[in-house]
Design a protein around this nucleic acid. Structure first.
Lengths: 253, 253
DNA sequence: CGTGATCTTGCACTTTCTTGCAAACAACCA
DNA sequence: TGGTTGTTTGCAAGAAAGTGCAAGATCACG
């Protein structure tokens, strides 16, 4: 196993568990704690982890102080499958929007290396990850960066979207219901999402099945505006049928 | 078998398996490891693979950029001291701009946690790092993200700056000379830097002493526009005096 | 304020990488 | 055909990276 692979895996575990432990990692990878510490240093320098005494935590859950061992990323298996399935909707070339979010983040990571694409994002971590890819042109939407979601919002993010037209928007969501459509807790984020969908020829929503049981404050799209919803096999087929009846094609990966 | 064919085959295997091993490839293609290494170098230059110690990994498999961390491994001591010294120029509260760059990145990392500040950045990694801090409001400038420097450029980054006024701009630079002022290789980045300085009440440049021996394509500021230059003790005092005579206060940390 | 755990740092060892050079090979052009 | 030119490959020596070990510093927590 290469050092980079180990680091990748460590990052994944940190995001999944909300925190990793030096000694445990050393045991599981069968290396010494020094090696793990060096890995954590690399990851911290890359800006994706923050080291703490005994281990490290991913930057995106730094805002909340001390270790509520709350799992940050759940349903990783399903999200991976959803992202893979959504890749089928990628245009051969052209432009896409990728919304901020953990599932859409996996989609971004899985973008092929051999297709010339222009990618519009509003999440600084996504921009960092994608910008070094030789086959991609990355455009970052500006604006105030929300600490919670690490996504840009507000006026400066909205305005460029008015002048953009992309082939496909890959969107995340917090809630998805037949009656209320797609919802999210933050009105500012809802505004961005709405603008993203407005700028796109087709809109594809990536949502694991847990997202279909909640409704949040701000609606950013009705189901009729969405062309496809990619979810996992855990979604009740009856609900899937209801949604499909309301407009979007439903793919259960 | 031609080199080109072999490289395509290597790329195919890397994408299929997620990784390739130098020694194994050498055996299977019946060539020496040097040849394989040269192939991997070609593929890396094409932007489709990332070489790692012992082999290579396709870029789409990598979720973060390890190369980024490696970039600021030179002059770390000096950069750290420069960043610390520049902190003295922070306003009590108010707004600042932090330019993209490794030295300014260290400044960002060292920002105090007890001061209410609005921070304007054009580098996604900086935005990610700072956004989770409770005492900071982070505003990201949008635009196309350059892969080389991970900084946003072009029109959408420039326009918001016209409507902004900040107290201090902390700038990086590639070259700094008495005759030619502050220069950088990329005209698009020069435009952003120029706009940043224009939006700021005071401009502070962070530059280690190696920056004073080069001049690059595009000038983004004359020395008279700069209020202070923070550098390290490795700078020739005579040069420092020349610079100071041209306008900015020179601090040798 | 002490104690055990955790962290840093320097060093050594092994594996891997780079680089200069020469041989092998293909291509090109009288 | 034969000579020239440029590319590819292999070899060998020196450089660098990754890892583990050990000693000392630092931290968290009772």
């Amino acid at each position: 196993m290469y050092a980079e692979e180990r680091q990748q895996e460590i990052l994944g575990r940190a995001r999944a568990a909300g925190r990793v432990d030096v000694v445990k990692l050393a045991e599981e990878f069968a290396v010494t704690t020094e090696t793990i510490r060096r890995d954590l240093t690399v990851l911290e320098r890359a800006g994706v982890l923050r080291r703490v005494h005994g281990g490290a935590i991913p930057v995106e859950r730094l805002g909340f102080e001390p270790a509520l061992a709350a799992r940050d990323e759940v349903m990783t298996e399903e999200k991976e499958r959803i992202a893979k399935a959504a890749l089928a909707e990628l245009p051969e070339d052209g432009a896409i929007v990728i919304d901020a979010g953990s599932t859409t983040g996996r989609l971004a990571r899985a973008l092929p290396g051999d297709r010339e694409l222009t990618v519009i994002v509003n999440a600084p971590p996504l921009a960092t990850m994608l910008a070094t890819r030789a086959n991609l042109t990355v455009i970052m939407l500006g604006g105030r960066v929300r600490g919670r979601t690490l996504a840009t919002v507000d006026d400066w993010a909205l305005r460029p979207l008015e002048d953009l037209h992309v082939d496909v928007a890959f969107m995340g969501t917090n809630g998805c219901s037949v009656g209320k459509g797609l919802t999210t807790p933050d009105p500012a984020e809802a505004a961005i999402k709405r603008a993203m969908i407005g700028a796109a020829e087709r809109s594809v929503v990536l949502a694991d099945h847990t997202k279909f049981s909640g409704v949040y404050l701000a609606r950013f799209a009705a189901l009729t505006e969405i062309d496809m919803i990619v979810t996992d096999s855990g979604l009740d087929p009856a609900v899937a049928a209801d949604i499909a009846a309301a407009g979007p094609e439903v793919v259960r990966a």
